[in-house]
């Protein structure tokens, strides 16, 4: 599904990703863990196509296709979804209006028929109910004045509606209390499917108690330093990231 080969990325003069290689199969939930400042968010932005990140070497492939030359919207239409660490507030744009625009833009790009409002409303309502997103939130401007937990639930709601092939969750657990964390994790788990892959970026092992990963990758200093199964997360929880930081310094 996702194939990242020897990826080097700079922001300005500074190289952040230094030869990152990672492979995630369809149906897989891959966790990326690592200390702060190692480029985890950079990786998520580069996959989603944010401006300002200079890919100096390497490739990112989605189902065999190099996506690095595609616009963010084109990548989204191909099924890439990024759940933001800090979802952006958009005053003046009603959440419902945004959801309709996003869904139909992707459908148009894929040559599918646009959803009509009643159908769309029903889909949104169903997804909102299971995620505890109130009708009031849907009427309000997107994310404007939402609490941290509300914003994260809104991200998962969008993911549920857009049905991506590859979902990247960037520190979705940050700022969530235990109840909100459970709601978000349930939302993710219900979307697990053989044709869909997840990349779960997190600093703490806590989230992985709720979203059980198939693989765990330790990221430090702009690279994947070690890969393993779910048990690797437990080891990290116990020992911290010191081995990987020390390894780099040595």
């Amino acid at each position: 599904m996702l194939e990242i080969i020897d990826l080097h990325v700079s922001v300005g003069e500074r190289e952040i990703l230094k030869g990152l290689t990672l492979s995630v199969k369809a149906g897989e939930v891959a966790a990326i863990m690592g200390p702060n400042g190692t480029g985890k968010s950079t990786l998520s932005y580069v996959i989603a196509g944010r401006e300002g990140y200079d890919v100096t070497q390497g490739e990112v492939r989605l189902n065999g296709e190099n996506i690095l030359d595609l616009e963010p919207a084109e990548r989204a239409a191909k099924g890439i979804f990024l759940a933001f660490q800090y979802p952006v507030e958009i005053p003046g744009v009603a959440t419902m209006t945004f959801l309709k625009a996003a869904l139909n833009a992707q459908r148009r790009a894929r040559g599918e028929a646009e959803l009509q409002t009643p159908d769309l409303m029903k889909r949104v309502k169903d997804a909102a109910t299971s995620l505890g997103v109130s009708q009031d939130m849907l009427r309000r401007p997107l994310n404007a004045g939402f609490s941290g937990g509300e914003k994260k639930r809104m991200e998962i709601l969008q993911m549920a509606l857009l049905q991506p092939r590859l979902a990247i969750l960037d520190e979705t657990d940050s700022g969530l209390d235990i109840d909100a964390l459970r709601v978000v994790a349930d939302g993710v788990n219900s979307l697990r499917a053989p044709e869909r892959a997840f990349v779960v970026i997190t600093h703490y092992q806590r989230l992985l108690e709720y979203i059980r990963p198939d693989t765990v990758h330790v990221m430090a200093q702009g690279r994947i330093m070690r890969s393993g199964g779910a048990e690797l997360a437990l080891e990290l929880e116990e020992r911290g990231y010191q081995d990987y930081i020390a390894q780099e310094a040595a």
């Binding site: 989603a48 196509g49 944010r50 401006e51 616009e71 963010p72 919207a73 990548r75 989204a76 239409a77 979804f81 990024l82 933001f84 979802p87 952006v88 958009i90 005053p91 003046g92 744009v93 209006t97 945004f98 625009a101 996003a102 869904l103 833009a105 992707q106 790009a109 401007p141 969008q158 857009l162």
Partner: peptide, 26 residues
């Protein structure tokens, strides 16, 4: 804001339009 909307599938000009509309609607 533009990147957020683009990452949800809105092409550049459409993302701009949505933000401009929101700005006027306020």
């Amino acid at each position: 804001q533009l990147f957020y909307l683009s990452a949800r599938g809105l092409p550049r000009r459409q993302a701009e339009s949505l933000l401009i509309e929101g700005f006027a609607n306020e």
